[in-house]
Simulated assay, not measured.
Amino acid sequence: MGILTAGGDSPGLNAAIRGVGKSVQGHYRMQLIGFRDGFRGLMENRSMRLDGERLSGILTLGGTILGTSRDKPQRMLVDGKPADMTETIVRHYREHRLDVLICLGGGGTQKNALHLKQQGLNIITLPKTIDNDVACTDTSFGFDTALGIATEAIDRLHSTAHSHHRIIVVEIMGHRAGWLALGAGIAGGADVILLPEIPYDIQRVAEAIRQRVRHGKSFSIVAVAEGARSLEQAAQIRDLEEQKLHARNKKQKRRAKQRLAELEADHLGNHTVQLSEQLERLTGLESRVTILGHVQRGGAPSAADRLLATRLGSACADLVAREQYGVMVAAAGEQAVPVPLEEVAGRRKLVPPDHPWIISAKRVGTSLGD
Rank of each mutant, 00 (worst) to 15 (best):
A225M: 05
A225C: 12
E226C: 08
E226R: 07
E226F: 09
G227Y: 06
A228W: 06
R229H: 00
R229M: 13
S230C: 09
L231N: 08
E232Y: 01
Q233D: 15
Q233T: 13
A234I: 00
Q236C: 11
R238F: 03
R238T: 14
D239R: 07
D239T: 14
L240C: 02
L240T: 05
E241Y: 01
E242N: 14
Q243P: 02
Q243N: 10
A247P: 06
A247C: 12
K250G: 00
K251C: 00
K253M: 15
K253H: 08
R254H: 14
R254F: 05
R254G: 07
A256Q: 07
A256E: 11
K257N: 06
K257S: 11
K257Y: 00
R259P: 00
L260I: 12
A261H: 11
E264N: 08
A265M: 09
A265F: 02
A265Q: 08
A265L: 10
A265P: 00
H267A: 08
L268Q: 11
L268M: 12
N270F: 13
N270S: 14
H271E: 10
H271D: 03
T272S: 14
T272H: 07
V273G: 02
Q274A: 13
L275H: 03
L275P: 03
L275Q: 07
S276Q: 08
Q278W: 09
Q278K: 15
L282I: 07
L282H: 05
G284C: 07
G284F: 11
G284V: 02
G284N: 03
L285S: 04
S287A: 15
V289D: 04
V289H: 06
T290Q: 09
T290F: 04
T290K: 02
I291A: 15
L292A: 09
H294T: 03
H294I: 04
H294F: 08
V295I: 15
Q296M: 15
Q296A: 01
G298V: 02
G299P: 02
G299I: 06
A300L: 03
A300Q: 13
P301A: 07
P301Q: 06
S302N: 06
A304W: 03
A304V: 12
D305M: 08
R306E: 02
L307H: 10
L307S: 04
L307V: 12
L308R: 02
R311H: 15
L312K: 13
L312D: 08
L312P: 05
L312T: 09
S314A: 15
A315Q: 08
A315D: 03
V320S: 01
V320I: 15
V320M: 12
V320D: 01
V320F: 05
Q324A: 04
Q324P: 00
Y325C: 13
G326D: 08
G326S: 12
V327C: 09
M328D: 09
V329C: 08
V329M: 15
A330R: 01
A330C: 04
A330S: 06
A331I: 05
A331C: 14
G333V: 05
Q335P: 01
V337Q: 04
P338D: 12
P338N: 11
P340T: 11
P340E: 13
P340G: 11
L341M: 04
E342V: 13
E343F: 04
A345T: 08
G346W: 11
G346I: 13
